[in-house]
C-alpha cells in the first residue's frame, strides 16, 4: 500500500492507495508514529483509492486514533467506497471516527474549528 502525505493548514492529509490489510497495517502505524513524534496530531485519512480493507487495516486505524487522542489530536476518515464502508459498519468502528464524503470536507472541518477558536492540534 502506498501512503502519500500532504500537509494542510490545520491537518495532515494521508492518502492511501492499494490494499489496506494486515500486511500493510504495520507500515501505516509506523508512518503515524513517525508523524506524531514530529508533532502532528490532526489527520485526514483519504481511503478513496483503497481497494480492500480487512480487520488488520482497520485495527491499525483504531490503534492510531487512540494514540493521537492521547495528545488531543484526531483522525478523520474521508471517501469510503461502499466496499470499505461495509467493513467499518460490520465492525461498528465507524462509531469512533468522524467520516466525511471527501478529503476536502474533512480538511475543511479542522479549518472551521480553527476559525471557531478550537485549539489547533498541528
Amino acid at each position: 500500500m502506498e501512503i502519500t502525505s500532504l500537509r494542510k493548514t490545520n491537518s495532515m492529509l494521508l492518502s492511501l492507495q492499494g490494499r489496506f490489510d494486515a500486511g500493510a497495517a504495520d507500515d501505516f502505524k509506523e508512518k503515524m508514529r513517525t508523524l506524531t513524534a514530529q508533532g502532528v496530531a490532526c489527520y485526514v485519512i483519504d481511503l478513496s483509492r483503497v481497494s480492500y480493507i480487512d480487520s488488520g487495516g482497520l485495527g491499525s486505524l483504531v490503534t492510531s486514533l487512540r494514540r493521537v487522542r492521547e495528545i488531543q489530536g484526531d483522525i478523520r476518515i474521508a471517501s469510503l467506497s461502499d466496499k470499505v464502508r461495509k467493513v467499518f459498519e460490520l465492525t461498528r468502528v465507524y462509531r469512533i471516527f468522524d467520516i466525511y464524503d471527501s478529503s476536502e470536507s474533512a480538511v475543511a472541518s479542522y479549518q472551521a474549528e480553527a476559525v471557531q477558536g478550537v485549539p489547533l492540534c498541528i
Binding site: 480487520s55 488488520g56 485495527g59 460490520l90 468502528v93 462509531r95
Partner: peptide, 11 residues
C-alpha cells in the same frame, strides 16, 4: 470497547 483486533471470525 471498539477493540483493535479480534474481528476475524466475526467478519
Amino acid at each position: 470497547e471498539t477493540p483493535e483486533s479480534g474481528y476475524g471470525i466475526y467478519l
